[in-house]
Design a protein around this nucleic acid. Structure first.
Lengths: 141, 141
DNA sequence: CTAATTGCAAAAAGTTTGCAACCAT
DNA sequence: ATGGTTGCAAACTTTTTGCAATTAG
């Protein structure tokens, strides 16, 4: 465990968002200016192989990362702003597991991304900027 | 509408799988050897913008494409072989639409990919001949 | 000390683009 | 003719890699 690796791991676990390598490099450089991009790439790959990190792809050609321990959540990408909203759905994973099983597979991981456009609701109009996604559930409104 | 474009469109609509640009280029080259990769990239981008094609990303750094008219389906990727299985789930889309709405968004499109490992099924158990008795779970067949 | 890790810069890999030639209309 | 399209190769962008220097254990 070297200093650089620690720094990068730190940046990653601190990240609340889904930074790409360039962004990780930028943040890591603030803590340790002599880190190189190559190391970021290498570390990120290492951590992904170890299952500590997950690579995401929200389009744009760059791989983005988030810590696996963030828990079960999915992403809704605002097609206008590119912003990523997270939401949860406990039942969803079980459902997908069933589907995979039905097809004869053990579900190892999954990727679910919704792309949407903000709906103008009365609430939204008043609030203007909802901060965080609320928990999404199977039923009930 | 030029010849090249027609050829590429043809290759794409004929494709039952999810080829990447390199593969498309290969297939198109068989029909018209003087097509260039650049044209494939350009055409693919064009068709995607027109909504005729959809870009997929199953990992591996390359964008893969499929005709939009293929219909509503999702993908299950066999992590061992890389093979892509398609499946449908009518209810799922409705569910996701609900979730998006609840979050204040109109669902425009979605991406769902399951990654799984093939489960030993009774059928498979018959077909495969286990040489070494290693599995503890033989009863499941 | 030994093996793993890093930085750097060069090289890959994938995709885009400038431009002159080319083709459909 | 005219404007969109193509091929080619060069340019870009993102990621990987060879290698010598450096560092952890």
């Amino acid at each position: 465990m070297t200093g650089q690796r620690r720094v990068i791991a730190r940046v990653l676990s601190d990240a609340e968002d889904h930074p790409d390598v360039e962004e990780l490099y930028r943040r890591a450089s603030e803590l340790d200016p002599k880190i190189s991009v190559a190391t970021v790439y290498r570390t990120v790959r290492l951590l992904e192989e170890k299952g500590i990190l997950e690579r995401r792809d929200f389009g744009g050609g760059r791989a983005r990362y988030e810590a696996t321990e963030h828990g079960r959540h999915y992403h809704l990408i605002d097609v206008e702003t590119g912003k990523v909203l997270e939401f949860e759905d406990e039942e969803h994973e079980a459902l997908m597991r069933q589907i995979a099983n039905r097809l004869g597979f053990e579900l190892i991981s999954m990727r679910l991304e919704l792309f949407g456009r903000r709906l103008p609701t009365p609430e939204a109009a008043k609030t203007e900027r909802p901060k965080a996604a609320k928990k999404a559930r199977g039923t009930g409104k």
